[in-house]
């Protein structure tokens, strides 16, 4: 019995090492190294970071990688104050932030932001001008854009949202958003609010799109990651990793791993486009 279990353990070990040896090409940089990498910030980044960390840590157990959320602003603050090695952000760090902390930015993926409405809303397409007028409070009823007779409920994101920043810059052209717009604190909360409210309009990251909400065509372009990648759909943002100064050691290896060919699959699986 004992011998059998030892044998099984050995078999499992050799199997595990065998698999690692076969996959180890992009992980070579971590070979024989040890240490900790701490990551915090943007919540959109987490699926990619998690997949990469899992792969690295199972190939090299001497490396520990911790991943926390908090949002783009938190990521920048934490890396700037030296609390984490990598701070993720869904927006470019502001000039004040870069100069104060000496940040270096590494974009690794592209994400689109889609206008969303309730799944049962008959509106199939909107123009950029219509969207801008709706968010500015100039169009207030769905029948003005070919929908049912119902007052439009506008949903927006919080001031610190990277999703809000790209939508406001690239689609709303930095225009005003009506003051009575409801503000929700995350992509998930936005999807929930819009999926429950038949008269809602809001915006979410394309990675979050599913059957619970509808993304109407914008200026005749169907909204999906392919259109975002080809440049047909213009409302896109980059996902960044930020480090304080040039990264060194395993942090450098990690940044190179994420931006390298190994992570392409992880980025696609999370619903984003590799940069």
């Amino acid at each position: 019995m004992k011998r059998l279990s030892i044998f099984l353990c050995l078999a499992l070990f050799s199997l595990a090492f065998g698999i690692q040896a076969a996959n180890a090409d992009g992980l070579d940089a971590f070979k024989g190294k040890e240490g900790t990498i701490s990551i915090a910030g943007g919540t959109a980044h987490i699926p990619v970071m998690k997949d990469a960390a899992k792969t690295i840590m199972s190939a090299n157990p001497a490396i520990r990688i911790t991943i926390a959320g908090g949002g783009s602003g938190v990521g920048i603050q934490k890396v700037g104050e030296g609390l984490v090695n990598i701070g993720n952000s869904g927006r470019k760090a502001s000039e004040a932030e870069v100069s104060k902390y000496g940040l270096v930015m590494f974009p690794f993926a592209v994400d689109g932001v889609a206008t969303v409405i309730h799944a049962d809303n008959p509106v199939q397409a909107l123009t950029g001008d219509q969207v801008r007028a709706i968010f500015a409070g100039e169009i207030t009823n769905w029948k003005e854009v070919g929908g049912n007779d119902g007052a439009i409920n506008v949903y927006a994101r919080d001031e610190s949202s990277g999703t809000r920043e790209v939508y406001w810059k690239k689609l709303l052209n930095k225009g005003t958003v009506v003051a009575s717009a409801n503000v929700v604190p995350s992509n998930g909360a936005m999807k929930l609010a819009v999926s429950k409210d038949p008269n809602a309009i809001g915006y979410v990251s394309i990675g979050h799109l599913d059957g619970s909400v509808k993304a109407p065509d914008l200026d005749g372009v169907q909204v999906n990651q392919e259109a975002a990648k080809s440049g047909q759909y213009p409302v896109v943002r980059k996902l960044y990793m930020n480090t304080k100064g040039e990264p060194e050691g395993i942090v450098k290896s990690f940044v190179e791993y994420i931006t390298g060919p190994d992570c392409v699959e992880f980025i696609k699986a999370a619903g984003y486009i590799p940069f």
């Binding site: 949002g71 602003g73 502001s94 932030e97 919080d158 503000v183 604190p185």
Partner: peptide, 23 residues
Amino acid sequence: LESLRAMTAHIALVVATDSQSLA
């Protein structure tokens, strides 16, 4: 029936913003 924002919720919404700004 109109939307409002409390100070506590305001802090929660804005805390992750650019830490060098007046906001």
